[in-house]
Amino acid sequence: MNVFRLAGDMTHLLSIIILLLKIRATKSCTGISLKTQELYVIVFLTRYLDLFTKYISFYNTTMKLVFLGTSISIVWYMRYHKVVKQTYNKDQDTFRHYFLAIPCFLLALLIHHEFTVIEVLWTFSIYLEAVAILPQLVLLQRSRNIDNLTGNYVFLLGAYRALYLVNWVYRYFTENHLVRWIPWLSGLVQTTLYADFFYYYIKSWKNNEKLQLPA
């Protein structure tokens, strides 16, 4: 474990906590894409299949359970909670997320490290996570005013994978030049997708104005 990865995990955890707090405190999920949240549940389920078969550390197991639990509860709130589900922007959150999942799965069948169920599904989760934010970014462009919590949520979500990129650079130089193209390239794509959001988020923060994404 290095400081970059720990910072990344904490940033990721914080983003999810902020989203849960927003939903529980305001009893509203306005501006949040259910499609993206569902994709994250799939990402965690397919990535943590070895949760009960491989014990790495207390930290690793705990964080996996926290990520699975929180992401599933967010989807539950948005789908079934009587008050929250009324605030879901159903008619604006129209991104066909299956168009994202299916190519990722096909790509995982083609490009992986070894052809086993666990490894192919793990690879699928890496590819899927890279594009899972797209429905959320599209929804942000459609919703006129973005509330601060939602903006902070998306910013921290993008920042966590950027910190993971730094972690991979650090590990490359400190762990006999271990090369891991699949997470590296996917992480690069994932972080790049946030580029224009980062630009507008930082601009709105500097000029102390409301966050607005150009349509």
Binding site: I56, E119, V179
Partner: peptide, 10 residues
């Protein structure tokens, strides 16, 4: 062994 190193990440 290469891939195992990755699996210690979240």
């Amino acid at each position: 062994v290469q891939q195992d190193a990755v699996k210690d990440e979240l």
